[in-house]
Amino acid sequence: MIRVLLADDEAVVRAGVRAILDTDPGIEVVAEAGDGHEAIDLARRHRPDVVLLDVRMPRLDGLTALPELRRAVPDAAVAVLTTFDEDEFVARALGGGANGFLLKAADPRELIIGVRALADGAAYLSPRIAQRLVAELRGGGLSRHEGARARVTALTARERDVLALLGEGLSNQSIARRLTLSEGTVKAHVSAILQALDVENRTQAAILAHDAGLTR
């Protein structure tokens, strides 16, 4: 069962999102919060698998609450639940540790797909948000570091682990020892990383890892 914490100051939005998630028998909304402070408290209490976090909330907004939520429940995936005109917050939220973005007005199936992907350890960007993000990257609207952080959200959690060690200059053999994986598995992860990030070699991937803040 995927346990979800829903944080939004609008009761009608919470009710609508809950109704959508309730259609999936594998998802349970375990708590609802009306602001960032309440979201942090409820996250500590209920230990959800996924937190859906609104950007604009009273007392403590979602972007300010995000880093504290990451510390409070480090194993949970935190996704920003946003409206389309709030995509200017994408880079800031990704830098704060968000695992993805979901749109309130999206197709209900997209919300369920996103929650399931997040629970599985993958990052998830609503296709419309992803399109806007790609346009910003192509147009130079994001800084190099913000762009790098946005790009690595396409990776799974394990792939980000591999990328971080690759960015530190480790060989496949050393990465395998560090992560307790087979060398063949690491090689497969590296190939998937290069493809997902659209880079040609390990050097370019290492630079991207450094720009994204993954390396020590």
Rank of each mutant, 00 (worst) to 15 (best):
L6V: 04
E183H: 14
G213Y: 06
Q173R: 14
A148N: 04
V199F: 10
V134M: 02
P58A: 13
A77K: 08
E183K: 12
L53S: 03
E32S: 01
R216I: 11
V55C: 00
V186W: 06
T83Q: 09
R18K: 01
R44E: 07
T215N: 07
P108E: 05
A130V: 05
L21C: 04
G139Y: 14
L197C: 08
A119I: 01
R44F: 06
D8T: 01
I193C: 00
T156R: 07
V78C: 02
L69I: 06
G100L: 01
G147L: 08
H145D: 14
D9V: 11
A31V: 01
D49P: 13
G36K: 06
R149D: 09
V17S: 08
S143C: 03
D85H: 04
L63W: 10
D87V: 15
R202W: 10
R149M: 06
G213Q: 05
I2R: 07
I27D: 12
P108V: 07
A33W: 07
V29C: 08
H145S: 15
D49I: 10
N99D: 15
A176M: 02
A148M: 11
Q131E: 13
A117T: 12
T83G: 02
D107N: 12
D49C: 08
D75N: 15
E146Q: 11
I207W: 06
A77P: 01
L52Q: 09
A31D: 00
L94Q: 05
G121V: 13
E159H: 11
L42K: 04
V17W: 03
Q204N: 12
T64Q: 10
E110D: 13
E200S: 09
M57R: 12
I40T: 11
G16W: 04
L111V: 13
A39K: 06
L125T: 11
A106V: 02
R109Y: 03
L42Y: 05
H210Y: 05
L53Q: 02
V115R: 04
E68C: 09
S182H: 09
V78D: 04
I112W: 04
L170F: 10
A39N: 09
L170R: 14
S143A: 14
V50E: 00
Q131L: 14
G97T: 09
R128H: 06
R70I: 03
R151A: 11
S126L: 03
F89I: 05
L179R: 13
A79S: 13
Q195L: 09
D9C: 02
D75H: 15
